[in-house]
Design a protein around this nucleic acid. Structure first.
Lengths: 219, 219
DNA sequence: TACACTATTTATCAAATGATAAATAGTGAG
DNA sequence: CTCACTATTTATCATTTGATAAATAGTGTA
């Protein structure tokens, strides 16, 4: 009923910037369903415009895809998550629960999960970059914060074994999203509960399992 | 240097059955790298034959792809894994370690992981079937065996929360394979150690976390 | 109203695609 | 050696694909 939706119905002349934004947003919808190998004609049909119009806004299909990546990957990270993870006024367990609820709220969508996996299979740079971001901005921090809360040396680097266990925890949570949105398989409805259990298990394990097997009392 | 490799070098006349097997095996290599949207011509080049020859062995590209699925998904499960998981003469912890080492030895290959994800994104039936297999043949059993070992009623169905926690454990281990073979990201070299830690954490958690929060003392 | 500007469409191209039919060339049986 | 058989290639088709150029049609401005 709004101005824009009426304009879209008739399919006539949107402003350049509006059109561009609409193209990217609908290209995300489209490519996340059909994969990036799908044709520009099919995409244009989905957009309700003719195929050559795409080329007035993007020099090539590849450029459009890159814009899709940018939009999907970037600006997904909320800046306050950094502070949340490192806010030592709150118990770590609470911080992690809040973080993973917010984080999974942001990325557990069919669109995001599928584009993430499609681009991962293509081995594109931005995917590798994202994995690095998870490694340093989430898992590395969690391990540091765990040390601090347990009165250990903050400066001690996490061992590879600890980092791996953090990845297994993170991957377990992430896989819930894959099962739900990629496999479309039934999952526990209560996402918070899943996160809570995963965290409990991880935090009790990182304390006992790791320290017990490889006590770094070298210093 | 062998007969077959020489024959392949000259590219001349293999027996029908040999050729067919070779096509499927190399199609797995090829599609796992390039994705199923890649062209039959490109595949033929990879095979060292001309493209129409493919159609003498498979009615259509789709039929070839189905054969690829069959070969990759089926016969991957070793029959003795069933017995291994349920062999109550051995402590559950040991059974799980042995099982997951063997299981990941079987599926943590670049080919398998990539074809699994490609087919998952396409939503093909065989992928859904496989997820069901993991659910019942691995995770359901683990939970049952855990009950038995802890003197609980074998007949009691696992709660959804328990099954979810088992999925998180399994997903965490599986994600190690994704990170290694899809993201090509560095992982802990010692896979056995990763499995061991994941299992320790899971088994200690399933006993305390779950039972503590939702004690099923209804009966 | 008339004009300039540009968003959009129509028409089109060359290359790539899945698929088929006919021609060719190894191979084994007699 | 010859001939039938079939594995393989060559030639080809109709579609689909990414992309471009030219024609058309809204829209704001004077």
């Amino acid at each position: 009923m709004s101005d824009t939706s009426k304009a879209k119905q008739k399919g006539k002349r949107l402003s350049s910037t509006q059109r561009r934004a609409e193209f990217i947003s609908k290209a995300i919808e489209f490519f996340s369903e059909e994969g990036f190998e799908s044709s520009t004609r099919s995409l244009a049909r989905h957009l309700g415009v003719t195929q050559p119009l795409l080329y007035r806004y993007f020099p090539s299909k590849d450029d459009l895809i890159k814009e899709v990546y940018q939009t999907v990957y970037l600006n997904r990270w909320q800046d306050d998550w950094d502070e949340l993870l490192c806010n030592r006024a709150i118990p770590l367990r609470q911080r992690l629960q809040a973080f993973y609820e917010a984080y999974t709220d942001a990325i557990f969508t069919r669109e995001w999960m599928r584009i993430f996996l499609f681009s991962g299979l293509k081995g594109v740079e931005i995917n590798r970059w994202y994995v690095g971001l998870v490694n340093e901005r989430i898992l590395g921090r969690i391990l540091t914060e765990f040390r601090v809360e347990n009165g250990q040396l903050e400066t001690t680097e996490p061992t590879p074994e600890e980092l791996e266990l953090a990845w297994v925890m993170h991957g377990g949570i992430f896989y819930y999203g894959i099962r739900k949105h990629i496999y479309e398989s039934p999952v526990l409805a209560d996402k918070s509960r899943m996160i809570s259990d995963a965290l409990d298990v991880f935090l009790s394990g990182i304390g006992t399992t790791i320290s017990a097997r490889k006590p770094d009392t070298t210093a």
